[in-house]
């Protein structure tokens, strides 16, 4: 990905991703929100591709666009849902929320623009794929967080089972 094409691709992706993100928050139908969320995930995957992080892009599509969004849709399906307005009590604070969000956007945007960023047009790595590099670093320098993540997932799994299953007193 080089030359003239990448800025054009970047802006197309940016408009799609941000637009879909806005649509998630603004549509009244929660199923539509979920579908727009999938679009946001795919847009993000596009950014990863643009940055030549092929593995991350694949994972983003598989796990987020594939897995998480299906879970979300199931969640929507299995719970009561009517007008999305009723399910969100914070809707009362439309004006205050809007002002706070605008201020935060101004502040963050301003700070990002005023910070100096080191930009390099070169590709980060000269490799065919990033998979093996990620694999090696996960089992060498990042071995402790890697194992911690494994235990964390185990705990989350046990917790989900414990909370979801009914109370059964042991005899």
């Amino acid at each position: 990905m080089s030359g003239m094409a990448s800025p054009v691709i970047f802006w197309v992706l940016a408009v799609v991703t941000v637009g879909a993100g806005l649509a998630v928050a603004l549509t009244r139908n929660i199923v539509h929100s979920a579908l727009f969320l999938v679009l946001t995930f795919i847009g993000t995957a596009g950014f990863f591709m643009l940055l030549e992080a092929d593995f991350l892009a694949a994972v983003q599509i598989l796990i987020y666009a594939g897995g998480v969004s299906v879970l979300l849709v199931f969640g929507v399906m299995l719970t009561r849902h009517g007008n999305i307005k009723l399910s969100n009590p914070l809707n009362r604070y439309k004006i205050t929320g809007g002002i706070v969000a605008a201020l935060l956007l101004l502040l963050t945007g301003g700070l990002i623009l005023y910070s100096e960023w080191e930009v390099s047009p070169e590709a980060l790595r000269e490799q065919e794929s990033t998979v093996s590099a990620i694999a090696v670093s996960m089992l060498s320098e990042y071995v402790i967080p890697f194992e911690a993540a494994a235990l964390l997932l185990l705990v989350a799994l046990i917790g989900a089972v414990l909370l979801a299953k009914g109370v059964k007193h042991s005899k």
Binding site: P145, A148, L151, L152, V155, A156, I158, G159, L162
Partner: peptide, 19 residues
């Protein structure tokens, strides 16, 4: 001594606490 490890430690602690 590193941010990713720190965050995972924090989450391991808090997720156990949620339950």
């Amino acid at each position: 001594g590193e941010l990713i490890t720190l965050y995972l430690g924090l989450e391991l602690m808090t997720i156990s606490f949620y339950i």
